Simulated assay, not measured.
Amino acid sequence: MLRPDLLLQPTPKGLYCPPGDFYLDPVRGAVERAVISHGHSDHARGGHGAVLSHPHTLAIMAARYGENFAKSTQAVEYGEVIDINGVSVWLTPAGHILGSAQITVEYKGLRMTFTGDYKRRFDPTCARFEPVDGTHIFISEATFGLPVFRHPPTEHEMAKLLRNIADFPDRTHCVGAYSLGKAQRMIRHLRLAGHDAPIYIHGALEKLCAVYEDAGVPMGDLRPATMDDTSKAAREAFRGQVVIAPPGSFEGTWAQRFPDPLIGFASGWMSVRQRAKASGVELPLIISDHADWDELTDTVREVNPDELWVTYGREDALVRWAMLEGRRARPLRLVGYEEEAG
């Protein structure tokens, strides 16, 4: 069987496939051919030559970077096998955000699966993670790759938010959520829980929420959280309402325009109390778009690859766990990837 490093190689620009002559999620500079796992900006950049990805990811990239974000694009549905210079490539749901995919490459009998970012629990805005059978080399993220990260059930955290809305009906609930993926997920969870009232959104969310709507994910009654009229009457109209915005919006004075704002933040990082306290978060919601420690280790056991490669986050702990289980494992040390979708 082919040596793994002859099929995928970690480089400063990202994982490179020499026989196929393409990169997976290149983030440092433009490349001629890129296969993109999902639309977060630390994985999907504009300016490449040819980009292959799921149609929803291409729509997200167009919304973020403009219609001409690449010289050419190719939309590939989940399970559709594409030949690139003799290398078979296909996408499988990753469960991270809308359009997110694991990328499997197969060549000369070697099958390698790159997860990008993923999670295992239910998300009403995207297809659920599916393990890829027969994977020889499994390339896993490790954003929350420490045993301390064991996220509570999403239903528990949403119930906390709904209780606060009911218990403090005169306050404006300002929930920080990453603009792509988390914000739309929070909106959809609220709708499924019966919250049919208008939800006010920051301008940074408008185009991306429209992409989700176009993909068949209903957002309900969304209204702009703008306040051109700064009169007391205009401000009072937000009392008792839910406002969703990127987390950075609440670090300045933006949230203070709303009456008696109650600041929340939906992120797996809210399990770290110091982060919540330092950010002035009154209502930390531990809702993550990444796999926690148990999901990471359970997934490796389920896929049961010949070798585990680990990237994006707490690599050493997951590699150490794998080796204690008698598995072959190595860290990739890729750089340039951030915590945009905690």
Rank of each mutant, 00 (worst) to 15 (best):
H151N: 12
R185Q: 12
K277D: 14
L98M: 06
D42H: 10
I137R: 13
V319D: 06
E106C: 13
W309S: 06
S249C: 12
A210L: 13
Y65P: 02
R301Y: 01
H202R: 00
I244R: 02
L190G: 07
L2Y: 02
Y107R: 10
V51E: 02
I84Q: 11
T73P: 01
V281Q: 02
K232C: 02
Y212N: 13
R223N: 09
L296W: 11
A237I: 01
D316L: 14
R111S: 12
A101L: 00
T154W: 04
H96D: 04
P246K: 09
A142V: 02
M219C: 14
D298W: 06
V243N: 01
Q74N: 03
G216H: 12
Y107P: 02
V31Y: 08
V335H: 14
S288L: 06
W293F: 11
Y23A: 05
G109S: 13
A317K: 09
L91S: 07
P93G: 07
Q184D: 08
V35K: 05
P169W: 10
R64S: 02
S140D: 04
R171Q: 15
F168L: 15
K277M: 07
K182P: 02
M112R: 00
T11Y: 07
C209H: 12
V27I: 15
Q256H: 08
R128M: 11
I201F: 12
G46W: 01
G313S: 12
F258I: 00
S267D: 04
E130S: 11
H151D: 12
G145T: 09
V76H: 00
Y107D: 05
L296E: 09
F138G: 03
F129I: 05
Q241Y: 03
K232I: 05
P259C: 04
Y200L: 10
E130Y: 01
E338Q: 09
A197I: 03
G145S: 12
R120K: 13
M219L: 15
S53D: 01
A70W: 10
S72C: 07
V76Q: 02
V310K: 09
M112W: 00
M227F: 03
I263N: 01
G176Y: 00
A44P: 03
N164D: 14
K277G: 00
D221G: 09
Q274E: 15
P259E: 01
Q9C: 07
E282L: 03
V217I: 15
V89H: 05
H290K: 07
H56C: 13
V27T: 15
T226K: 03
V51A: 04
S88C: 05
G268F: 04
E77F: 00
A159G: 14
C209D: 06
I137Q: 08
M227E: 02
T125G: 06
A255E: 10
R111T: 11
